[in-house]
Amino acid sequence: MFPVSDTAGIESAVNRFMRYVNGPVDRWFGDRDTMHKLIDMARVSTARVIPENFPPPRVRGTVLLSVVNNRTEDAAALMEWYLHRDHFNRLDSLRRASAFDAVLRHRFPDYAQARDTNR
């Protein structure tokens, strides 16, 4: 947030905003500008969290995005990795992740085939 108390502060706020957009925001998008990078990022745990924390929306979203972009092998490999972890994020469980996998298998035959091959 870049508060502006009066018209004199607008230029300063715009400059701070643009530094942010051209710095951290630009790097964030640059780290995620290809499918390969997104797939790699799905396996990066949240910093400073023990045990390792892989947010379910990131992993599941990447699996689904991979499937709909005809990268079923990548999706299957990511799901295989995720399902065989020792622990899950507090918002997830092996049962929930397995149910998600089952729905994807049912809905996307190519994914099901890739998962069966990946085992």
Rank of each mutant, 00 (worst) to 15 (best):
V63T: 11
A77F: 06
L104H: 11
A75E: 02
Y82D: 09
A8T: 08
P55A: 04
A112T: 02
L38V: 08
R58D: 11
E73H: 14
R95N: 06
T34F: 03
V67F: 02
V14R: 07
F54I: 03
D33W: 05
R90A: 09
F29V: 09
D74W: 13
A114L: 04
P55I: 03
T34H: 08
N89V: 00
M1E: 10
A8N: 09
P24S: 13
L65I: 00
A99H: 12
G9L: 04
Y82F: 14
N69F: 03
A13M: 05
V44L: 13
I39M: 10
I10K: 06
L91C: 01
G9F: 00
I39V: 15
V63A: 05
A76H: 13
P56A: 04
P57W: 01
V21Y: 14
D92I: 00
V59H: 07
L104S: 02
R85C: 05
G30V: 10
A8D: 11
D31V: 00
L78I: 07
A99C: 00
P51M: 01
V44E: 05
F54M: 01
T46F: 06
M41C: 08
R115Y: 03
V44N: 09
T7S: 03
V25P: 06
P3K: 01
P109D: 05
A99K: 12
E52P: 14
R71Y: 11
V103M: 14
P56S: 04
P56D: 02
I50G: 02
A75W: 08
W28Q: 10
G9V: 01
D31R: 15
T7N: 06
H87I: 00
M41V: 09
I10V: 14
